[in-house]
Amino acid sequence: MKYFEDNPEIFAALVAAIAILGGLLGSIIGAKIQANGGRDQAAAAREAAWIAAEAQRVAALWSVRQLQAAQFVRSVRELRRLGRLYGQDPNNADLRGQGRELLQAVTLKGAEIELTAPDHVVAAAKDLVATAVYNYNMDRRAGPVEHAEEALVGLCGSADEETAAAAHRAHDTIRPQAPVPHEERLRLLLAVPGLSVQHAHRLANDPEIEYRYQDLSASNLERALSTFVAAVREVLRSEDDVAPTAPVQHR
């Protein structure tokens, strides 16, 4: 202290230097703090932007999946409805054209789902496509037979005894596993008054009566449809009654 008392100019210079160094150090520390804060703010902004973009992506994907699933289910049900018409009007020329269009629609919607859905939904969609196509083909083949048998059953209730008796004899030959040769079956069917030749040949050529298996095919279709719908509802979180959200991020 004696030295500084004897040399006041040096003491003043030292104080000034300390003040300058202190100011510089404070500025450096402040700048570093500000830089770190800026980086944190920038990182927070980037993360917020990413979360917002991810939320938009999830919401858009949710909407796409919902629309695709709804269109797919509608196409499957419409194909089923069309297939059942073969049992009512098998000679309708428009059915085949409409059937081809619906088959393409079902296949296309199933393919679209393969591109956007999780694996278990894709598996359910593939099963539903295969089942729906098989079921339609079964309806298309069995519908005319069903229509022919309905005509024969109607003749079994004819007020004309000979017609009713002939119809009953012919109907006995088309029961499942009835041991009647094709020629005999056709002869008895052609002998039924009022039964068209077309109906007689349809029944004679199909002793197993394929339409008898339609109930099984229909139940398989309902099973496949229910499985697909349940899988989609799980993905869409239909039971949660909430809007889609971005997944939780773990930092």
Rank of each mutant, 00 (worst) to 15 (best):
V122H: 12
R140S: 07
L102K: 09
S75V: 08
R81A: 14
A123G: 09
D139Y: 14
T107L: 03
N91A: 12
R77D: 00
A148D: 04
A132P: 01
A125M: 01
A164V: 11
A93M: 07
A165T: 10
L95A: 06
A166T: 06
G99L: 09
H147C: 12
E146D: 09
H168T: 02
D160W: 04
L95N: 04
D89L: 08
H168D: 00
C156V: 00
A148R: 14
D119E: 15
T107M: 03
E150R: 14
L82G: 04
V121S: 09
L95K: 11
A132I: 01
V106Q: 05
R77Q: 08
G143V: 08
R65K: 15
E112A: 09
A164F: 08
Q104C: 01
A70Y: 09
V58W: 00
L82P: 02
G110T: 06
L61I: 12
R84T: 08
G99R: 09
Q71K: 15
N135K: 01
L82F: 05
D139N: 13
A165K: 13
L85S: 09
H147K: 15
E149S: 05
L95S: 06
L103W: 02
A105Q: 13
M138D: 04
L79Q: 07
N91E: 11
L61S: 11
T116E: 04
V64S: 15
L152I: 10
M138W: 15
G154K: 02
T107S: 12
G154M: 05
V58R: 07
G99W: 05
L128C: 04
K109F: 11
A117K: 07
R84N: 08
Y134I: 00
P90F: 14
P144W: 14
Y86E: 01
D160H: 05
E114K: 01
G154H: 04
A132K: 03
P144A: 11
D160T: 11
V145H: 04
L108G: 00
G154V: 05
T163Q: 11
I113D: 03
E101T: 10
E146Y: 14
Q98S: 06
D89P: 00
V121T: 13
V122D: 04
K126F: 01
A148Y: 09
A148N: 10
V153W: 02
Q104V: 12
E149V: 15
N137I: 03
V145S: 08
V122G: 11
G87Y: 10
R57A: 12
E146A: 12
D94F: 14
A70V: 07
A159N: 03
R100I: 03
A111R: 12
A60C: 04
T131L: 01
R57V: 03
A164M: 09
R77P: 01
S158E: 02
H168E: 03
